[in-house]
Amino acid sequence: MRIPVRVELDKRGIDLHSVRCPVCDDDLESVDHSLINCKFARDVWSRVHKWWNFSSSSVLNVEVIEGKCGHSSSAIGQKIWQAVVWVCAYYLWKNHNLKVFRNESWSASVLVSEIQVKAFEWISSRIKGKSIDWSNWLVNPQVFLNL
């Protein structure tokens, strides 16, 4: 995964005032940290897993970001969960950039709401012959893992 995190930029000789995470300032900014291990990212992933009724510990690894977790038995269900993961990663990075370039950030609850909306829009526009109901999506999205 090629994301311009501070640790990698520093290796390339780009002068930065710090290589620490701009979101939490607790650790060096690596891909793993930014998308998984940052306190903010962990909070977002935990909320996404709570929304999907998964245990929060099963999401916090690189394999989930790379789409290698097995929450679904169907091919469509796997693609739905993978889309949610990618939308989540996208919004975590978007929040990171908001912090870096504007010194602003979203709350975890706002970010998860954005993830729910964008993942629903993306998935419902791409699944042929299957209907995804918004209210079920918000309350019980796990039902879509078995489409």
Rank of each mutant, 00 (worst) to 15 (best):
L111F: 00
H96F: 15
V112Q: 02
G129I: 12
H96W: 15
E114W: 10
Q78V: 04
H96K: 12
V87D: 05
K94S: 14
W93E: 04
V117W: 03
V100Q: 09
I123M: 07
V110D: 09
K99G: 10
I123T: 08
S109F: 03
W81H: 05
E104R: 15
Y90Q: 02
Q78S: 10
K118Y: 04
R102L: 12
N97L: 15
S109K: 11
S105K: 11
K128G: 03
L98P: 07
Q78A: 09
R126N: 09
L111G: 02
E121Y: 13
K118G: 00
K99L: 14
V100D: 08
L92A: 04
V117P: 02
K94I: 08
I127H: 01
F120V: 06
N103G: 09
A83V: 11
V84Y: 02
Y91R: 15
W93V: 05
A89V: 08
G129K: 13
K94N: 13
E114P: 03
K99M: 15
S105W: 07
F101D: 12
K79D: 06
I123S: 04
E104F: 14
K128H: 09
W122H: 13
K99H: 08
R126C: 07
K118V: 09
Y91S: 10
I115A: 04
I80A: 02
I115P: 00
V112D: 00
V110I: 04
I123N: 01
Y91V: 03
L98W: 03
C88I: 01
L98R: 11
S125Q: 06
I115D: 00
W122M: 12
N97Y: 14
K99C: 15
N97C: 12
V87H: 08
A83Y: 03
K118F: 03
W86L: 09
E104C: 15
S113M: 07
K128Q: 05
K79M: 09
V84A: 01
F120P: 01
K130E: 15
L92D: 02
K94F: 07
L92F: 06
N103A: 09
F101G: 11
C88R: 01
N95F: 06
I80N: 00
